[in-house]
Design a protein around this nucleic acid. Structure first.
Length: 505
DNA sequence: CCTCAAGGTCAAT
DNA sequence: ATTGACCTTGAGG
């Protein structure tokens, strides 16, 4: 469930979320982008040398700020996994003497409490009064604001109608984000770490407002059904006669799924790419892009489909221990040795595990649970896929054409909203928020996927055919981003990095 | 001046 | 006892 902020404008960019719990990050803490709550939790845990046991013993708990109770063991593990360094926590000061100087000159100057005593002049006195009047804390966005991300008590769904790209990118923040932190400067850093700052999608001016086009979603729904039918025909192995004429939302039945053979899947990659291309072509403005932009967008869309389609197929079939790929092949998620993990001439079982377990975990631990948690509908899935594909492709497309992407994203958003209205969905805003929340995990998983594929390419472990490589290769933007980010962090944490590397050697 | 990321405090749970 | 918002600090720009 999503706690809404009283102000509908109080929302959060996807790229500035806490890597641990998904809340608004307040910067880097102990070397990981995180919120202050997770930072405090991490600091306490390390400082007090605590150890926890997972409340489910599975060590796979979802860690999310919206949860009433977060498994401390899994939260701490996720802190570490997100890059937090215990070494960054300073040892506890044994006594007050050796503690920090609270009464230094500069400290006194900046300390509101002490600075405000004994004003010397009338003017200063006045100032003190003013400060004390205005300083009472801004009312906290506590549980009283319980509601839905895009609504407040008085104005139901109207906020959704006004949603533009900027709002869409941002995440509703329940109660953590206080006005104090200077997240805006971070935003610029996060999204444009490069030397020649690209226009950040967050900073970009409001897109030209588009009229709601309620049929955008239905166009994609129709296409999704077609896609399912094509897959059924191509991969299900059932007699053609039993396949035609049925328009269902899930291409496969339980009995259609079969153990995944990587070799077969590799052969089918080109087909999947072509299907995604077809999917993309239903976007009217696709032909307005030049070849390069089309290819970039197609790459991103393929990536998103490769993540979301198996997630949704698996969700539909309802056997979470079998991750079902687009061709109806499944791979065991319960262990990484069973079905689908065998050695094959193209790729060893060991390398399968090395390259695909991380990405699979992203799907099974982050994306699928989110779909399950909200019990995502077919229509919502279609919208999610479109949003992720187009929004994900935003930065891959040249700046001159980005407004087209924005326009399309807005159309999807508007038509999803229209769909909710039509259905009389009571929790529209909440479900809306849940979908938006999924996007950052999807983008993270996408980056990981691409990185792994590059490694595979380097080691010639899996000889993708040329088209596949062209499409799945790490594109230049991602590469530059990753490098710049690494450099930026290395510079800032120069001392720590040196220390750590010394320690390790 | 400013921002950032440390540690400390304390009301709410 | 734990949490998380808020505060103060020193370092660095």
């Amino acid at each position: 469930m999503f706690l809404g902020s009283p102000s509908s404008t109080q929302v959060t960019p996807a790229s500035t979320r806490c890597l641990i719990c998904g809340a608004q990050a307040t910067g880097f803490h102990f070397e990981a982008q995180s919120c202050s709550a997770c930072a405090a939790f991490f600091r306490r845990t390390v400082a007090l040398t605590k150890s926890f046991k997972c409340i489910t013993t599975l060590d796979q708990c979802v860690v999310h700020y919206s949860m009433h109770q977060i498994c401390r063991s899994c939260r701490y593990k996720k802190c570490l996994a997100s890059g937090m360094k215990p070494a960054g926590v300073q040892p506890k000061k044994p006594n007050v003497e050796t503690g920090r100087a609270f009464f230094t000159k500069s400290g006194l100057k900046r300390n509101k409490k002490f600075a405000s005593v004994l004003p010397q002049t009338d003017d200063e006195q006045k100032l003190v009064v003013e400060v004390s009047v205005s300083s009472p804390k801004v009312p906290k966005m506590e549980s009283e604001s319980e509601g839905t991300p895009f609504s407040n008590s008085s104005c139901g769904t109207s906020d959704i109608e006004k949603l533009d790209l900027e709002d869409f990118i941002k995440i509703p923040t329940p109660r953590k984000f206080s006005s104090a932190t200077s997240i805006t400067s971070n935003v610029t850093n996060f999204s444009s770490p490069g030397p020649s700052p690209m226009t950040s999608e967050f900073a970009s001016p409001a897109p030209p407002t588009t009229k709601p086009q309620p049929n955008t979603l239905s166009v994609f729904i129709k296409q999704e059904m077609k896609l399912g039918e094509q897959r059924r025909l191509l991969f299900s192995g059932r007699a053609v006669g039993t396949l035609l004429g049925k328009t269902r939302q899930c291409p496969y039945r339980k009995e259609d799924i079969k153990p995944l053979i990587f070799h077969d899947f590799r052969i089918s990659i080109k087909t999947h790419i072509m299907l995604v291309h077809e999917w993309l072509e239903i976007w009217p403005e696709f032909e307005e892009l030049d070849d390069f932009d089309r290819m970039s967008l197609l790459r991103k869309a393929v990536l998103i489909h490769f993540l979301l389609d198996p997630s949704f197929l698996t969700f539909q079939i309802g056997e979470p221990d079998k991750l079902i790929m687009q061709n109806g092949g499944f791979i065991s998620t319960a262990d990484h040795k069973g079905v689908g993990w065998e050695d094959e001439p193209d790729i060893s079982g060991e390398n399968k595990r090395k390259y695909y377990v991380p990405i699979m975990k992203q799907i099974t631990d982050e994306i699928m649970p989110a779909m399950q948690a909200m019990n995502i509908t077919f229509e919502e899935f279609v919208a999610l896929k479109a949003l992720a594909s187009f929004q994900g492709g935003f930065e891959n497309v040249s700046e001159a054409k980005r407004h087209l992407i924005t326009q399309q994203v807005n159309r999807v958003l508007n038509s999803l909203h229209a769909h909710y209205t039509e259905k009389g969905e009571e929790k529209a805003a909440e479900r809306f928020g849940a979908i938006v929340l999924m996007l950052s995990n999807i983008f993270t998983a996408g980056n990981d996927f691409v990185k792994n594929h590059r490694e595979i390419d380097i080691f010639h472990i899996w000889d993708l055919d040329e088209l596949g490589l062209q499409l799945l290769n790490l594109d230049k933007i991602l590469e530059t981003e990753a490098r710049n980010e690494a450099e930026r962090r290395a510079v800032r944490n120069g001392i720590n990095v040196v220390n750590t590397s010394l320690h390790h050697s």
